[in-house]
């Protein structure tokens, strides 16, 4: 299960809405081993695309280095789908390289409501998990 504060949930949704129709992406860091998302880090989508996202590799290096120095890890990796459901695509699964992370997908395809779902993706296997907003 993913437990996430309302404020962080709202920031992800706001980021996804702001970048729509392009996909938005980012990380929430937390203390290593805590499974607690705490520090919101919106990332550039270097692909600036409605169907693809990728972290800018230099920005990612800096962010990962900073997490390492603060003894944090990427507890959440999020991105948006802007025309399809909030479920990991084949591309999402083939790239998923953080087995300890919660992969949050949001969909901004409907104007009024934003789907918000969370998954574990390990060795190509996708498992959806409940989301508790605190």
């Amino acid at each position: 299960m993913l437990s996430i504060r309302r404020e962080l949930h709202d920031k992800i949704v706001a980021h996804a809405r702001a970048d729509h129709p392009d996909e938005a992406c980012g990380v929430i860091a937390g203390p290593a081993g805590s499974d607690r998302p705490e520090r919101f880090i919106p990332m550039l989508n270097a692909a600036r695309s409605p169907t693809f996202y990728e972290f800018d590799s230099s920005e990612q290096f800096q962010v990962w280095k900073e997490m390492d120095e603060r003894d944090e890890e990427p507890v959440v990796i999020y991105h948006s789908h802007t025309a399809t459901e909030a479920y990991p695509s084949r591309t999402d699964i083939s790239y998923a390289g953080e087995p300890g992370a919660h992969y949050i997908l949001v969909s901004t395809r409907a104007e009024g409501e934003t789907e918000f779902r969370s998954y574990r993706i390990v060795d190509g296997a996708v498992t959806e998990e409940p989301v508790e907003i605190t």
Binding site: E23, Y53, E54, P88, S89, T91, D92, Y95
Partner: peptide, 12 residues
């Protein structure tokens, strides 16, 4: 030398 997983994906 640092190796990181590329973070990427998308609908396509």
């Amino acid at each position: 030398v640092t190796v990181l997983p590329a973070v990427a994906g998308g609908t396509a």
